[in-house]
Simulated assay, not measured.
Amino acid sequence: MSLVSDHIFEKRWASCLSNTALLTFLKEREVRKLEIIGVDGNGCVKASALAAARFGFKVTLDVKCIGVTNKTKFTKTKEKLLAAGVSFAN
């Protein structure tokens, strides 16, 4: 993995937006759209996407870049994300 920025934000909870410094960083730069990828679509990706949608971001998830160990559970997760306004790219 290449480091392309000095902007690094750590998190303690599932949602990346639980780090208020990241949220502030995004708002200061007037970011409106987020593409979220990650290791667990039923965990951190879900929590981050739902939080981002609640904060008013337009959220896209690329399913090719999201790990899913429990595909049955992810079907329900996907329904919840769609209901929250999250969109999916294939």
Rank of each mutant, 00 (worst) to 15 (best):
L82C: 12
S5F: 00
N70Q: 05
N70F: 07
I8L: 12
K71T: 03
T75Q: 13
H7C: 02
A21Y: 04
V59N: 03
F74H: 04
A47N: 00
A83K: 15
C44A: 15
T20E: 08
G56T: 03
T24S: 03
T75D: 03
F88I: 14
A49E: 11
F55C: 07
A89Q: 14
G56C: 12
T72D: 09
A53T: 08
H7D: 07
K33R: 13
T75K: 14
G41A: 11
M1F: 12
V59H: 12
F57S: 10
E28C: 13
V68G: 06
K64N: 05
A52M: 00
R12A: 04
E79F: 01
V68I: 13
K64P: 03
G38P: 04
S87F: 10
F25V: 06
E35P: 03
G38S: 01
G85E: 07
T75F: 01
S5T: 11
A52R: 04
V68T: 11
V31W: 03
V86R: 08
S15E: 01
N19V: 00
S48V: 00
V68A: 05
V68P: 07
A51K: 14
N90K: 14
L82R: 14
L34A: 15
E30A: 10
R29A: 00
K11G: 01
G85D: 04
A14V: 13
N90R: 13
G38K: 11
K64Y: 02
R54K: 12
R32N: 06
A51D: 13
L17R: 11
L3Y: 10
D40R: 15
R29H: 01
A84V: 07
A52I: 03
K73V: 12
A51E: 02
T72N: 09
T24K: 14
A49S: 08
G67N: 09
T69F: 05
F9H: 05
K27L: 12
A21S: 10
S48R: 06
A49W: 03
T24P: 01
G41D: 10
F74Y: 15
V86G: 08
V59F: 10
N19C: 04
T69V: 08
A47R: 02
R12V: 05
L3K: 15
L82D: 08
K76R: 08
R12K: 15
T20M: 11
V86D: 03
E28K: 15
T24L: 11
V31N: 00
V45E: 01
D40Y: 15
L50G: 00
G41P: 10
D40T: 15
K76D: 11
S15D: 06
K27E: 09
L23E: 10
D6L: 12
E28I: 08
R54H: 10
L50N: 12
A21K: 15
